[in-house]
Design a binder for these strands. Sequence first.
DNA 1: TTAAAATATTAACAATGTTAATTATATTTG
DNA 2: CAAATATAATTAACATTGTTAATATTTTAA
Lengths: 198, 198
Amino acid sequence: MTKNEIQEQRMRGYFIDATRTILKGEGLKAISVRNIAREAGYSYATLYNYFKDVKDLVFECVCDFQEECSEYVSKMTSEEAPGIRKIRAISIAYMKYFVEYPGIFELFFIEKPTDLATRQPTVARINTFLDRLCEEDWELVIQRGLLSEDKRQELARQLKYLTTGMLVFYLHRREDIEYKEFFNNAQRQFSALFAETI
Amino acid sequence: MTKNEIQEQRMRGYFIDATRTILKGEGLKAISVRNIAREAGYSYATLYNYFKDVKDLVFECVCDFQEECSEYVSKMTSEEAPGIRKIRAISIAYMKYFVEYPGIFELFFIEKPTDLATRQPTVARINTFLDRLCEEDWELVIQRGLLSEDKRQELARQLKYLTTGMLVFYLHRREDIEYKEFFNNAQRQFSALFAETI
DNA sequence: TTAAAATATTAACAATGTTAATTATATTTG
DNA sequence: CAAATATAATTAACATTGTTAATATTTTAA
């Protein structure tokens, strides 16, 4: 990396950090070019020297958030025994992360990139994220002969749609329930989902 | 209803119709006060004599869309035999409606009302919508003794979250699949969901 | 037919994303 | 080291957004 590239990456980092701060705090609706620039300590037009547009910048945060969420999930599920029970714990922790940071949920699942083609890698990462979090444990369950490869794919998909669906209803307040009830319900959903898999 | 009330309802209707047209056509992102007013044939400020704000107007369309969707579903599932198979057909038709009108999906599940408290009835209607579409057939399945009341609630919830989750991923292009593959996948999800219920 | 009330429209404001013009800073060259 | 050039940051500007205040118009009442 040349000296210029280092400086450029540093500048991008300032804007990305600012964007992350706002997304985690006031959320996606509070994101604006001027807001980000103020948080980063630069003028709003400077942003356009380093990013195509504000959506481009916002989607740049996805990888960092995924890493953060991974750690969050790891810490919350470390003492859970590997296997199906761990997959459940991971899914709950994953949902708790988004409940804690609704702005990140909006970014991951609601916001549309300006140009889908160039953002395809990012979008693909989002799509496979929960699967990757559970990867180890899915493998384990298959090794133990509790699940076929096909059944694993099917369950993983259901898990993906279920978690996202529940989060949509809860975060967008389509059902009138509290935090505790929400996660009780999530546990019940998972029980039903994994019922056959003992 | 007094003469004034009739006129007021008529005016509200003009704006609601205009909003529905835009939502069904260019979608929620194309909704703007000036757009709606142009479509309705009035000035943009006139809107505020009949609605608190633009979100208030937009959420006024929910009931009409639900009726429209109900008819859409009825027509698409009329020759299906009542019971679980019909519930599956209804769910597929329901999803097809939103795939045809993504703007209506955004309104139903993504958009947040300005004041949740006053919009609680509307939001509750959205939450229970799919359930109401399937009501008859759920009852039938229970009457036939194929399902307990508890199991019905559980399945209905899973169905609700699954459909919404799938639609989020598809409409927001988080997974790179086409129309046909999407509904094939949906069918597979439903097969798994209803597997125990033969 | 005129006075009053109701209703619609234009003007205005603050905030948004983005681009062009301009200023300030670094870098290169004589 | 100083002057010329290239780079990068800032302010100005524009179009669009939702909403409110100030006007103009139409309808109703006297």
